[in-house]
Write a protein that binds this DNA or RNA. Structure first.
Length: 897
RNA sequence: GGGCCCUUAGCUCAGUUGGUUAGAGCGCUACCUUGACAUGGUAGAGGUCACAGAUUCGAGUUCUGUAGGGCCCACCA
């Protein structure tokens, strides 16, 4: 490659081949793996994270992309800082989702239901499906560049994970925390399974309020009950009123006739009843309402279940047997009207529970289920956060966590599914003995009978997820734990997840892991990222068709651009409104870096590694010292921002440094040296360019790993992923003077461009200027850097003067600077009127500002009370404004002359 | 009913413990193919920081209230 023309880098950055190449190289060279002989490196600091395992049925969506980008940034950053990094990937068996996928497939291809096939055969099908398609999501994750340790990959149904689940279950069972009980639970008729409270979503549904007349037995009186679900009356076993309600106090001990049936039910008195609501009279259906179930318990009411497992009415509701609730309601209403029991109907909006997975209406049902008593574990989990052993970032999410854990409800663990961890409880059919066991028994420990049957249900998927940080490190198998370095990596440093699973996952991991890890919490920080929405802030959904597919975006704009966009938008807010236009603009940024590299590459090629690793500070010029000082600043802010999980800030400062400081100024300033000079000066510049560019690539790497690794490979023989993250350099901190000089130059060039634009002077038209500088160093600097001025501001000739001479040239327009004045020679090409207007506008602005500042200074309570440096700053400001004002006034006077 | 959050430029968002003229990106306007990049360059327009009070020398920032929007929890039939 030559310095003058041909360059074998393409003119625009093409991500695909580069992404493919580097992920493979990293994998092959074991960059994601642990370092060998870890046991001998006792004092090596560790950094461990578990990936929230995506569903095995999942397809990569923007939420995954954001979540894993955040983790990968942390992981790559810590790896470069010399930590022993372990990021554990995995996949969730997702009981409900997977089972339904396979059921559908079975129906389509073989016209068979799972029941027809039988449990064992069906599970074979599921495993087969898993082996065939289960790696899809994994391959998609790789497209994102995740640098996780695939040696540790765990599937929640792996034998080791099953072992963990069984150990946990059996211990909890023996501790008496797991019990089986007939309780009212949320039943999903579509899934034909119980679901946990957390899996129910309440949605507003327009309904009616029905007032029904129940005749009091042995009396002419009627009671009027209000209900939204008249069809459930077949399950009523009482009517309740408030004990202090005088309207009904005379009815103590009486019964009412239940319409459409031949039953009578008692009138009971219970404090739960709200006297103000409806008629103050409540029908009690203990079998199908959570409150009524509690009332029923208090009054020993019988429970009548009137629904089948598929959500249809059974023989206890003979009038509507075989119908679902929607079909049944009109029929019941008609029948009630006919017997004269229907009093009135009002519109009413009510909350109806829907299954999170199935989307269908769920029914409260009484059934026999397994529960986990979480009381004690929940308070331990609360305490851990209160005592700041674990913290949420942003902190406010602890409220969500607390609100759930401070009023814990027992967790319904059992699901009437087939795909999942089967509950390890066994029943002896001979002696009825029941026990839990970690491995399948062959006979009853009590009577030695071989007639042993395992419980039919499986565990809630979240049960295995709750143990994840331990499971993935080999718990409870001692050998595996040693092999996986459990002691070094538990607890994890951070968990990165969305706020929607704080209850489901974060809280449950805190409870379960802390319980089983001898009181040790599973992670120290929980970073909660935003939920990705479309650009209008709407949830991405199939029905709105507003989803943005990360894989499509990666294909279109490149992975690095997608990652940078996600990181740049990952602030502390709850929502992340993603506009593909943003991705496009960061794609442009990647291209900018590529081209900056393309430009400096030939010059950097001649620089030896040694020249870069130890820059001779004495040889550096002002510009070089300036960019190094700026580099120092960006290293500081990127580091600090990542440590604080402010990926947005990190991206912003990196972007600004690369775009403005490096490309717009330093590269432009370098052109003169690189093109027009030879020898030492050029060598030094090339070395500094290589030094700074190398650090830029290091800083960029956690965010945009592919481009940075590719460019690095063209500069250095090593792999960037394993390089050391840049640190602040004490020497560069000293370059304050140089910073000032360069900032003065930037200000001046900008002002000249401004003047040129205000005069509508085409860039081609050469101009002459004069700079009057306040101080000698400034003057000398401008004098020494004339070439750069010519280049950057398109100046033909420049004079540099010291301001003390107050030599203001004629036929010029003037612009005040913080360090002096700059004049542009007019030479007749200028519209004087326009110029007068511009100056007048400027004067007004200066006047306003000056007035505000002087008012402040005239206020004794400000000068007395405000901190000294604040007052000093304002004084300086006032002086500057006065100076600038005089300059403009002078200019105006000369223009009007 | 309880709790949390949001309201800053046309759009999406920053704004740390109160302290110069409230910032960025995108978009928009004008001009420019100047030897890395038109996925580019230069310059510019655009904001009564939702509203009303209070505290303060000083409030986008603290406090109280109001309005609008979002989310979570809760047994109101």
């Amino acid at each position: 490659m030559s310095e003058t023309g041909e360059n074998d880098l393409e003119k625009t950055y093409r991500p695909e081949p580069i992404e493919q190449k580097w992920y493979q190289v990293w994998s092959e060279r074991g960059c994601f793996k642990l370092s060998p002989h870890l046991d001998d490196k006792k004092d090596r600091k560790t950094f461990s994270v578990v990936m929230p395992p995506p569903n095995v049925t999942g397809k990569l969506h923007m939420g995954h992309a954001l979540n894993n980008t955040c983790q990968d940034i942390l992981v790559r950053y810590k790896r470069m800082q010399g930590f022993e990094v372990l990021w554990i990937p995995g996949c969730d068996h997702a009981g409900i989702a997977t089972q339904s996928v396979v059921e559908k497939k079975l129906m389509q291809e073989q016209k068979q239901t799972r029941q027809e096939l039988g449990r064992e055969k069906f599970l074979e099908h599921v495993w087969h499906w898993k082996n065939e398609y289960g790696s899809n999501i994994v391959e998609q994750l790789k497209k994102l560049g995740v640098s996780c340790n695939w040696d540790y990959f765990t599937f929640t149904m792996d034998p080791s994970a099953n072992k963990a689940v069984r150990r946990a279950f059996v211990e909890l069972y023996r501790q008496g925390l797991i019990y089986r009980a007939e309780r009212i639970i949320h039943w999903d008729p579509q899934l034909q399974s119980a679901i946990s409270d957390a899996e129910v979503e309440f949605k507003e549904v327009k309904g009616k309020f029905y007032h029904l007349k129940y005749k009091v037995e042995d009396s002419e009186e009627y009671l009027v009950v209000a209900t939204t679900r008249p069809e459930t009356l077949f399950g009523d076993t009482a009517v309740a009123v408030h004990p202090l309600d005088e309207r009904y106090s005379h009815l103590i001990g009486k019964r009412v006739k239940l319409p459409l049936t031949d039953r009578t039910i008692p009138i009971i008195f219970d404090e739960h009843v709200d006297r103000e609501l409806g008629t103050g009279c409540l029908k009690v259906t203990p079998g199908h309402d959570f409150n009524d179930f509690e009332i029923g318990k208090r009054h020993q009411l019988p429970i009548i279940t009137i629904l089948t497992k598929s959500g249809k009415f059974n023989q206890h509701a003979d009038l509507i047997e075989g119908l679902n609730p929607q079909q049944a309601r009109p029929k019941v209403i008609a029948a009630l009207e006919e017997v004269g029991s229907l009093l009135e109907i009002k519109d009413h909006v009510m909350l109806v529970g829907h299954g999170e997975r199935s989307g269908g209406v769920v029914e409260p049902m009484v059934s026999l289920q397994w529960f986990l008593n979480v009381g004690e574990m929940a308070s331990t989990a609360v305490r851990a956060v209160e005592k700041k052993k674990m913290r949420f970032i942003p902190e406010t999410w602890q409220n969500t966590y607390f609100s759930w854990l401070r009023q814990p409800k027992d967790w319904c663990l059992s699901r009437q599914l087939w795909w999942g961890h089967r509950i390890p409880v066994f029943n002896c059919e001979s002696c009825q003995f029941q026990w839990a066991a970690e491995s399948d028994p062959t006979d009853c420990p009590q009577c030695k009978s071989h007639h042993v049957k395992q419980d039919e249900d499986v565990l809630d998927t979240w049960f295995s997820s709750a143990l994840w940080p331990m499971t993935t490190l080999g718990w409870p198998d001692a050998t595996l734990m040693k092999q996986k370095h459990y002691d070094r990596f538990y607890p994890n440093q951070v968990l990165t997840t969305g706020h929607d699973i704080i209850f489901f996952w974060v809280a449950r991991m805190m409870m379960m892991c802390t319980h089983f890890a001898g009181g040790q919490i599973p992670f120290k920080d929980v970073y909660i990222h935003a939920i990705v929405r479309d650009k209008l802030g709407r949830k991405m959904s199939k029905s709105l068709n507003n989803g943005i597919d990360p894989l499509e975006m990666i294909e279109k704009y490149g992975c690095d651009a997608v990652r940078f966009t996600l990181a740049a938008g990952a602030g502390l807010s709850r929502n992340f409104n993603l506009d593909p236009l943003k991705i496009e603009s960061y794609r442009n940024f990647m291209n900018k870096i590529w081209n900056a590299f393309r430009f400096v590459k030939p010059f950097m090629d001649s620089v030896s590694e040694g020249d870069v690793s130890k820059l001779n500070l004495n040889e550096l010029g002002i510009q070089e010292k300036w960019i190094l000082a700026e580099l120092n600043d960006v290293i500081e802010s990127v580091t600090k921002s990542i440590e604080e999980y402010r990926f947005d800030d990190a991206c912003k400062s990196l972007y600004a440094f690369v775009y403005d400081s490096f490309c717009s100024w330093f590269l432009e300033l370098s052109k003169g040296i690189l093109y027009k000079t030879e020898g030492r000066e050029k060598q030094i510049r090339a070395a500094v360019l290589k030094y700074v560019f190398s650090d830029i690539l290091k800083l960029l790497h956690p965010f945009s790993p592919f481009l940075s690794e590719e460019l690095w490979s063209q500069l250095h023989p090593s792999l960037l992923i394993s390089e050391v993250f840049p640190k602040m350099n004490k020497d560069f901190k000293k370059f304050k003077e140089e910073k000032t000089r360069l900032n003065e130059m930037i200000e001046m060039v900008t002002q000249v461009r401004n003047l040129r634009a205000s005069l509508n002077l085409a860039p081609k038209i050469p101009i002459r200027i004069q700079v009057n500088a306040k101080t000698h160093p400034t003057a000398k600097f401008f004098f020494d850097n004339q070439y750069n001025l010519f280049h950057l501001a398109r100046i033909k000739r420049a004079k540099v003067r010291s301001l003390s001479k107050t030599d203001r040239p004629r036929k010029t327009i003037i612009s005040p600077l913080s360090f002096g004045e700059v004049f542009l020679f007019l030479e007749g090409v200028v519209d004087i009127q326009k110029e007068i207007l511009r100056n007048e506008r400027q004067l007004t602005r200066l006047d306003q500002e000056l007035r505000a500042v002087q008012q402040k200074l005239g206020n004794p309570s400000f000068t007395d009370r405000a901190p000294e440096e604040v007052v000093a700053e304002v004084r300086e400001k006032a002086e500057l404004l006065i100076h600038q004002k005089s300059v403009v006034e002078d200019s105006l006077a000369r223009l009007k002359d």
